[in-house]
């Protein structure tokens, strides 16, 4: 079952064709010359970036402010952007992640994890545990105790239902590495879950 988590793909939204990537690259080049040309990228990714930011915090207004900050930072640094054959979104997600973490450090706000019960059920299934409602509390405690990089992986995969390719691009690791890391985290979650249930 653990291996199923590794092999299963969730959402096809991230997979761009070569034409789509090249078209995006043209827009980026145009935006480097004139900020007004950034509009298509802003329209395309605003909702996704807001979703990413809001997933990690409680306050909606702060999430909107931070999303604006992410795009301002992206526009300010677009000259430094280098096309590496992956969608522009992965660069935006990295900026968003660093902005979110910076906000937590500066304002001592609570890091928030948002999930549905169905997501927790899914994790239970992945770690070969039969899901029961009373597992929710245990699982939430186990997830809260994970270090930030591991929590990030669980969030991206199970709560945001991203494909491994996308996760790898966001975290700047290989797809295999992302799978191996997640496999190890799930093994540890399984151990903790079994221990806490005894």
């Amino acid at each position: 079952m653990l291996l199923d988590a590794v092999n299963m793909e969730f959402s096809p939204r991230y997979h761009h064709t070569t034409d789509m990537l090249l078209n995006e690259q043209h827009i980026i080049e145009a935006a480097k010359q004139n900020p007004e040309h950034f509009a298509p990228l802003y329209d395309k990714y605003y909702k996704q970036i807001f979703g990413y930011v809001y997933q990690r915090m409680d306050c909606k207004e702060t999430a909107f402010d931070l999303t604006a900050q992410v795009f301002l930072k992206a526009l300010s640094n677009i000259e430094k952007y280098e096309f590496k054959g992956v969608p522009f979104a992965s660069w935006l997600y990295r900026i968003a992640h660093s902005e979110v973490m910076q906000m937590f450090r500066n304002n001592a706000k609570l890091r928030t994890v948002n999930a549905d019960v169905s997501d927790l059920r899914h994790i239970c299934e992945e770690v070969e545990e039969e899901y029961m409602e009373q597992y929710n509390g245990v699982l939430m405690t186990v997830i809260k105790e994970l270090p930030e990089d591991e929590l990030q992986l669980i969030e991206l995969r199970f709560f945001e239902k991203r494909a491994f390719k996308e996760i790898a691009d966001i975290l700047e690791i290989t797809e295999t590495n992302a799978k191996v890391k997640l496999y190890r985290i799930l093994e540890r979650v399984k151990k903790k879950l079994t221990k806490k249930n005894k």
Binding site: D58, F104, L110, R111, T112, V113, N114, A115, D116, V117, L120, N136, M140, I143, K144, E148, L151
Partner: peptide
């Protein structure tokens, strides 16, 4: 960093 967990927001 303290973490808060929200279910079904």
């Amino acid at each position: 960093m303290a973490t808060k967990f929200n279910l079904n927001r």
